[in-house]
């Protein structure tokens, strides 16, 4: 590229070597500096205007726009949480229950819930229907565990 070369050799034509050099108007720098100041001033004004407009819009958005409704919990997530809790409680219950025979009697509240769950799965129920059933199952298990722990404590006393 030409920018890497500075041809200080005389031009091929002697005519061009004799070209005079002229100086620009001495006031040109002042005009350029003034133009620069105006340019920067316009940009600062535009930036300030932009910032102000953004601030006004933001404030208006806060005041005018309706607040977002509480986000409804995702049925799938809710179902998964109750299912995991139910499984954890089931393991806890199995550690407390000494004999299968006694467990069968104590688990009778769960049977109705399990039947309802099975029927729901059989008909292809949605997560929204399943989640309350798993919630009920977890609560039933929690009650059974609490009762069992109380009974053990009573017997020990």
């Amino acid at each position: 590229m030409s920018e890497y070369r500075f041809p200080f050799d005389p031009p091929a034509s002697p005519l061009l070597a004799g070209l005079p050099e002229f100086a620009p108007d001495p006031a040109l720098w002042t005009r350029i500096a003034d133009a620069r100041r105006r340019q920067l001033g316009r940009r600062r004004f535009a930036r300030a205007g932009g910032s102000l407009a953004a601030a006004v819009l933001f404030a208006a958005a806060i005041v005018i726009l309706p607040r977002p409704a509480p986000v409804a919990s995702d049925p799938a997530t809710e179902l998964s949480a109750w299912l995991q809790q139910s499984q954890a409680l089931e393991q806890e219950w199995s550690r407390l229950e000494p004999s299968p025979e006694a467990a069968r009697g104590l688990r009778s509240p769960l049977r109705r819930i399990d039947a309802a769950l099975q029927a729901a799965y059989d008909r292809g129920a949605s997560d929204e229907e399943l989640a309350p059933l798993w919630e009920a199952r977890s609560k039933a298990l929690r009650a059974m565990i609490d009762n069992r722990q109380d009974a053990v404590v009573t017997l020990r006393i």
Partner: peptide, 28 residues
């Protein structure tokens, strides 16, 4: 560098006012 810019533009454009415009545009 202004004189070099000015003479380059002036030799090609032939008009001092146009060459000064070029110098101003280039420096801005």
């Amino acid at each position: 560098y202004a004189k070099a810019c000015y003479n380059l533009a002036l030799r090609i454009l032939g008009e001092p006012a146009a060459a000064e415009d070029i110098v101003q545009d280039v420096f801005l």
